[in-house]
């Protein structure tokens, strides 16, 4: 890459744990929570969003370059920490975006702290038990194979990650799933304690789901819509679970339009 880096890297802390944060762009704050596979870094969707927002991309506690809270046993524990991080960063009203496991954590954060949020965006979010089918179990897959399942097709995966996966990336995925396995296990990738409180949350919420999501069924998006007080479901044609990787510009446009509207 020869282009100028458009974001900065900083470290903050919560309960004595260091949290790495990438920051870029200008405008109202947007915090982006990564999937269970960890943060790959500053993505094209972040770049696009940074035209309209100050985009904050943390490594969730225990993932990537952020210290592990050894006591954490549930995504709600990370939600508690991340709410403290948002308060500490003094970001003003925040558009909170999360994908997959990050989406679940974002939903948990919103139920505790919705006055801090101007809007919430959940992309293929885990956290609720589907009526039909199951949330895909990453434990039963080789982690490369699992990431592949995040795409609408193997070609879409190869288009982004190439034929040969860099070892840094596979190390990140391997490492990330350890933290994931520490905070969600029984039941896998959802909580029976989340749905009952969703109705209390009035933050405007956009639910973005790839129509071909093989990891978190679109049905989960429908359930979020049903249980949240103020939510809209946008099913994206042709995309898999990782909508923001397959269609970064479209995803950024949807978020920008929603958050500005």
């Amino acid at each position: 890459m020869t282009t100028t880096q458009t974001y900065t890297e900083e470290t903050t802390s919560v309960t004595g744990l260091s949290v790495r944060v990438l920051r870029g762009g200008q405008g109202p704050s947007l915090v982006w929570l990564h999937h269970s596979t960890g943060s790959v870094g500053w993505l094209p969707v972040h770049e696009k969003l940074s035209e309209n927002f100050t985009v904050i991309v943390p490594d969730l506690p225990g993932f990537g370059q952020s210290d592990r809270p050894v006591w954490a046993r549930h995504p709600r524990d990370l939600a508690l920490l991340m709410n403290r991080v948002i308060d500490k960063l003094d970001l003003g009203p925040v558009t909170l975006v999360g994908g997959g496991l990050g989406g679940w954590i974002a939903a948990e954060m919103a139920t505790m702290n919705d006055t801090a949020l101007s809007s919430l965006v959940l992309i293929g979010a885990a956290g609720v038990q589907p009526d039909e089918g199951e949330i895909m179990d990453l434990i039963m897959f080789d982690f490369e194979e699992y990431v592949k399942n995040g795409f609408s097709s193997d070609d879409a995966f190869t288009a982004i990650f190439g034929e040969e996966i860099e070892s840094d990336l596979t190390t990140l995925w391997d490492f990330s799933r350890e933290m994931t396995a520490r905070i969600t296990w029984k039941p896998w990738m959802f909580s029976r304690q989340l749905v009952p409180i969703l109705a209390e949350m009035e933050t405007p919420t956009l639910l973005i789901w790839g129509e071909l999501d093989r990891v978190v069924p679109v049905n989960c998006g429908e359930l979020y819509q049903k249980h949240l007080a103020n939510a809209r479901l946008d099913v994206v044609g042709g995309a898999g679970h990782l909508v923001e990787l397959e269609q970064p510009d479209e995803t950024a446009a949807k978020i920008t339009e929603f958050a500005s509207g």
Partner: peptide
């Protein structure tokens, strides 16, 4: 063996 099942996370 399935390598990934023998090498579970953590």
């Amino acid at each position: 063996v399935q390598a990934n099942l023998q090498n579970l996370p953590g």
